[in-house]
């Protein structure tokens, strides 16, 4: 893990243009995914995650990051798959997303972090209209590495605070607890 971080630091000295094409690849829900390295703040190992009750599955809980409380999102669950099991290789990728002109630090629980890849501009393709079982707006583009395609995630969409905090109520729905809106519409 430390190696990874070192690597990342060394690369920061490179030209910004090169950086644009660097991606951190990781696994979540048995799938190879990647995000732009510029979105990654830090990669940490998992200590204790405190569960936050009354939240949907994809909100895994909160952790203590040097005295600050940071929410952790279960990426696999967020993409509509099973909740991740925590294993030896599980990691939390810390990313920063913008919300109402504020930056919010979020942890992203992934099954394993692989490597940092350089994908040339020419190998980056637009996302398919359908076919991927991930919401299309979550996919920024597809990156071709050798003979395979890796999904490059649009982190500001996947971890959109607006949506995450809204969807909470949908989750309430699903577990059978009528939310306020539900009761109103029922009354109408």
């Amino acid at each position: 893990m430390n190696q990874l971080i070192h690597k990342q630091e060394n690369k920061t000295e490179l030209m910004a243009q090169d950086q644009l094409r660097q991606y951190l690849t990781f696994q979540a829900g048995n799938e190879n995914l990647a995000i732009s390295i510029l979105d990654v703040k830090e990669i940490i190992e998992i200590n204790t995650i405190t569960d936050v009750p009354m939240t949907p599955d994809y909100i895994r809980g909160v952790i203590n990051l040097r005295g600050n409380v940071v929410p952790v999102i279960d990426l696999s669950a967020r993409l509509g798959r099973q909740s991740s099991e925590i294993t030896k290789r599980s990691c939390i990728v810390l990313v920063q997303v913008e919300y109402k002109e504020d930056a919010q630090l979020l942890g992203m629980l992934v099954d394993a972090v692989d490597e940092i890849l350089e994908i040339p501009e020419a190998n980056i393709m637009p996302p398919p209209d359908f076919g991927a079982d991930i919401r299309t707006d979550f996919i920024q583009s597809m990156g071709r590495v050798g003979d395979e395609f890796i999904i490059l995630l649009n982190i500001n969409r996947v971890l959109s605070i607006k949506e995450l905090s809204q969807l909470k109520q949908v989750a309430d729905y699903e577990s059978g607890n009528a939310s306020k809106e539900a009761s109103f519409s029922a009354l109408n």
Partner: peptide, 16 residues
């Protein structure tokens, strides 16, 4: 410690 924007709509938990 504030829980942040993510838990804005969460009733019942005041903070951490």
């Amino acid at each position: 410690k504030p829980l942040g924007k993510l838990f804005e709509n969460l009733n019942g938990i005041g903070g951490a």
